[in-house]
Structures are given as C-alpha cells and as structure tokens.
Amino acid sequence: MVDTAPAYRYVQERLGVDLKAVDAAAELASFGVDSLSLLELVFEIEEKFSVKLDEDTPPPRSCGELVALIERLAATKP
C-alpha cells in the first residue's frame, strides 16, 4: 500500500480541508468545490497514485467519499 499522506496534504493545501478531521457527510460543495474544481481534484489524486479511474467511476460528492476514494486507490497499489 502506498503512502496516502501526499493525497491528504494536497487536499489540505488545495481546499483548506483536513479530511481526517471534518465531518464525513460534509459536501465538497460546501468548501467551494464545483464541477470544474472537482475535475482537477480527482485528476491530482489520480496522479498521486499513478492511476486513471474508469470513466464510469462516480466522482466523490462528500468528504467521506473523497476519503474512501483515496483509501481505495492506495489499497489497490502494491
């Protein structure tokens, strides 16, 4: 499993949100994330794990879903 710290650090820098401290149900939109910034967010997280998500992967809507995505990507890497 690869280190997830860079992904969490990126989210912290990019959105000013500590994903581990915030309510999992909190909508990313409440931190100003719109469809454009969500594209960038997912792209940068993909880059952290050197993967490309399937196009039919639903984008995360909440902080909890973003955490789940990061953990899932980390777990799939050797």
Binding site: R14, G16, F31, D34, L36, E40
Partner: peptide, 12 residues
C-alpha cells in the same frame, strides 16, 4: 485570491 474566491475556485 483564496480569501476573495475561496481556495477551490481560486485554484481553477
């Protein structure tokens, strides 16, 4: 810009 637009939008 982060204060003016919010960090998420500023980054786009």
């Amino acid at each position: 810009p982060a204060t003016l637009f919010g960090r998420a939008r500023a980054g786009t």
